[in-house]
Amino acid sequence: MLRIKCPFCGERDHSEFSYGGDANITYPDLAAPMEAWIEAVYRRANPKGPHRERWQHIDGCRLWLIVERDTLTHEIASVTLAKAALAPLVDGQSS
């Protein structure tokens, strides 16, 4: 069981969260060239090791989180809110 320390709710089983994939993808403008969208939607670095990824605490506060996790050991290095502007809502970002 991955234990993800949600900055808002505390540490929870990963089954409360929904995985949203690679957080390093930067999505282009809605009208950006085709190539940029193909890159963002279809190509994945898929690293073996540290991975920045998005999780939504879907059965909790529903906030989207950025989790740094090792894809080989599953060790979680940090959890932060995806939307930086929401940071004041929580006591302190976990890391």
Partner: peptide, 13 residues
């Protein structure tokens, strides 16, 4: 298991 992994071992959920 619904997350990227190379670990060859799964989890309880």
């Amino acid at each position: 298991d619904m997350y990227n992994s190379y670990a060859q071992r799964g989890n309880l959920p």
